[in-house]
Write a protein that binds this DNA or RNA. Structure first.
Lengths: 232, 232, 232, 232
DNA sequence: TATGAATGAGAGTTCATTCAT
DNA sequence: TATGAATGAACTCTCATTCAT
């Protein structure tokens, strides 16, 4: 997790870093960094617990008491790391999303056909997002976005706009290579990812009633775009 | 005294008024139905107000005080119509959704090509859902669904499953008539509506950053499915 | 008590007044005004209780819980009458001081010598302020004034400046009549009341260690100003 | 290691520094006294900081965190010097008041007329108390006295009773020498200092609205007691 | 000796729900 | 039937105090 300390946590975090560097290689540095380490662990535990609770209950219905209990810390400890409930929520989303963005930026080497690229990407999405905590996060953002414009903004800026741009590039490549016939698709990359989004939402709302084979659905959707796959 | 009409806010209010007009002139009925009439109006006002507030703030953050104020009734009056906040929310969604279902059932006469049918449907959806209160309702259900399984269930049963079934029928018709080539599409009617759903969500979260021309997007999507439209 | 209702309390207070006027003389007005009456009583009880607690503990150390308990109401009821703890304190001082000012304005008929007037005034002060709740209020204002400028301002405007002006008028009359020799006294009416203030503070802090005969002290002070009294 | 010096904050700090310079060069004493020295300095800093904060906010509203920050020590360090917040406050007042008493005891040689003595005293009071931190301390004691009887007791015993006794002695001298005519004044020395006290309070509460020329007021008051001064 | 992260009791405030009118 | 004052449980946030380092 890339350090992005709260004001409250910054001093200890910074100092910890400094000290660790200074005592690099010296055994008895352990106790010094133990403190910082424990602080990091606590912070991580709070983030983890808060995420679970926010996803399970939404922002307003989540009790800080429950987050504390789940994280195994005292109520007051939360306030050593976050200013208040609101900014905790906002920061949380950032904290959880940043590594996602990082991974998106670590582009896979563009080899093979565009369809293969998109399939690889979709496969990854299936595994890592649909039906997972990460998927619930998406639903959380959809749910709370209007009340937390800064969260929606952040999510748009960091994830959506980049994702859209990436998709558009892929689509244009596909068009240039003749893999995609529908030229206007480049104007609406949302169409490419729409079924994936629907799958995310479907899983958390309706999976009970009618399980959805997301993988198959994506395949069909890609057939629509790239033309039917020959007999594999 | 119909205590719990399964009619939507507006329509029930309108009908109630109509009835009052109809019974005009019957002396001993007038005062009695006046009472009922007023009760109906109040109830409708509460439903309307509650919907606005729930959409704007979500379930937990909505105050009954605000609903009462907006509806122009006293706080206690709400409890004459609904058991408590939770069951009010659950009932509310039902009340608002029922007329939607009713309209869906009043199928438009299936004339013309399948594409024309779907386009008509999509056009209606564009006008009546995307960027409207009704669209926000969809987002509200996505947001609160996990905490209100009964709401999600109801929505699935009354709207989603029927909608899916209807789409499937259309798709099969399209396949039979040769308008749709991708045969597997019938297995995932979700693909047909996915961009529409995405448009709904996009409007309430990201319209500010990047307005989305939903109409055009739907057209492109239909081109994908039905093959490109010739020059008009 | 001149009605000066809080925003929260205003509606009920106003309506109560209106209704009371409307139903003047009609017996069954009782139940209607009972409500308003009870509300007034509650409000008065809160004011009374809050005053006691604030005097006993100061602003910061006073618990709303204790005020509620002492007033015999629920904690939430306080918020029907006052916006929050701070504005409750500020309003409280106003509420308690207003009748004091009213009484000051109801000037006693200026008969007899200036010394007699001043003695009458001092006698009243002795009876009504020194060693009473009212005296404690003065100490409370001294204590909290710097943290509640609005309170200090109000007290200065309504009580201190008027009191000073009144004293100055009396002193000038005394000088004109030849009862007071020290002409510069009119420039510092504070001197006239200083021992009275000291007596107020003394009673609440040191009475235990060394009781102070305030009456005698004031007499000696007046002798200083008016010259020794002959053997009456 | 003198644990609880009975010296005032500032003076002890200054003196401590002086001592450190004096013991410079004694090898094995240096580190030991360095420790004690640092401790003394810290303690003095805490006392100073605490005084400022208590005066500015009162006892209950003062945060130990702020005291620590202002003193440049960690929160925990305070507890190495004081048992808890309450006893810190009580001790503090003692620490700050002791040097005042000491100075009072170092009586100036009684030369000249009584009026001159009193004027010298009043002049000193004007300079050192009215409108200064020391004056605020008086207000603090008035404010917190009822909640800290031990503070009020201490202040009475060490300052008030001695001051009263001293004033009485002066007054009696004045009467004996014929400078003061009003014999009963000796029974109420409070009258002599009352305007000075009023000036202290006035400065911190009302100076903004109506500045008070304390020096002139005291002069007028002394004229009242000693008779008008001739044209110097 | 000094630190400051951690604690958790306790404070102010809100708001769903009740009930006398 | 309708009201809205009253309730008090429950929530967020603060801060004196402790203790491992």
């Amino acid at each position: 997790m890339t350090k992005k300390p709260t004001k409250a946590a910054s001093s200890s975090a910074d100092r910890a870093k400094g000290r660790a560097d200074a005592t690099q290689g010296i055994d008895d540095a352990a106790p010094a960094s133990n403190r910082a380490l424990r602080a990091q662990e606590r912070r991580a535990a709070i983030v983890e617990a808060a995420m679970e609770e926010f996803i399970a209950r939404g922002f307003a219905a989540t009790r800080l008491d429950d987050i504390a209990k789940r994280a195994g810390v005292a109520k007051g400890t939360i306030y050593l790391h976050f200013k208040d409930k609101e900014s905790m929520f906002e920061e949380l989303v950032r904290i959880v999303i940043v590594p996602v963005v990082a991974r998106l930026n670590a582009l896979p080497p563009p080899t093979g056909t565009v369809r293969e690229l998109v399939e690889a990407f979709a496969g990854n999405f299936l595994k890592e997002v649909i039906g997972t905590r990460r998927g619930d996060l998406v639903r959380l953002i959809v749910a709370e976005g209007p009340r937390f414009p800064s969260v929606a903004d952040f999510y748009y800026r960091e994830v959506v706009s980049r994702g859209i741009a990436g998709m558009r590039a892929l689509i244009e490549l596909g068009i240039a290579r003749g893999e995609i016939r529908e030229k206007d698709l480049a104007r609406f990359p949302q169409i490419l990812v729409a079924p994936a989004m629907i799958a995310v939402i479907w899983q958390s709302l309706f999976a009970r009633h009618a399980p959805l084979d997301a993988q198959e659905m994506l395949r069909v959707h890609l057939d629509l775009i790239f033309g039917e796959r020959r007999t594999t």
